[in-house]
């Protein structure tokens, strides 16, 4: 029966049921993924981010919140120029992490 409306999908991040395989795997080879303080330097300096939604800070969060598909889609925009790695105050090897995500 068509009521003219339907259930809205939940906007919650379901932490109990998300799949963190990629992030956990990443953590093994790059322990520094845990040290991000979300300052946003990477996003603001991003060459690709100048034209697109590319944001490494959010990408890391996506992986931590089980949004792997979104993260992988975002990576496609990356030019690998390395500016983010250069400005990161925590010295995170961002380029390596970006490349490792898709392994």
């Amino acid at each position: 029966m068509d009521f003219g409306f339907c259930l809205s999908p939940s906007s919650h991040v379901k932490m109990d049921s998300i799949d963190l395989t990629t992030f956990n795997r990443l953590k093994e080879t790059n322990p520094d993924v845990n040290t991000c303080i979300a300052c946003g330097s990477c996003t603001s300096t991003c060459t690709a981010g100048n034209f697109t939604e590319m944001s490494f800070r959010r990408l890391l969060l996506m992986l931590q919140r089980g949004k792997e598909d979104e993260a992988k889609k975002m990576i496609q925009r990356c030019m690998l120029c390395g500016k983010c790695t250069l400005v990161c105050p925590r010295g995170i090897n961002i380029r390596k992490i970006l490349l490792d995500i898709t392994r």
Partner: peptide, 28 residues
């Protein structure tokens, strides 16, 4: 909430800064 990472100067000598508004999730 976001760290300024680049500063440049525009034609009038004013400063153009780049940061991410991390709470809003967009570069600014």
């Amino acid at each position: 909430r976001g760290r300024v990472c680049e500063v440049s100067e525009d034609m009038d000598g004013r400063l153009v800064i780049k940061a991410e508004d991390t709470l809003f999730g967009k570069p600014l």
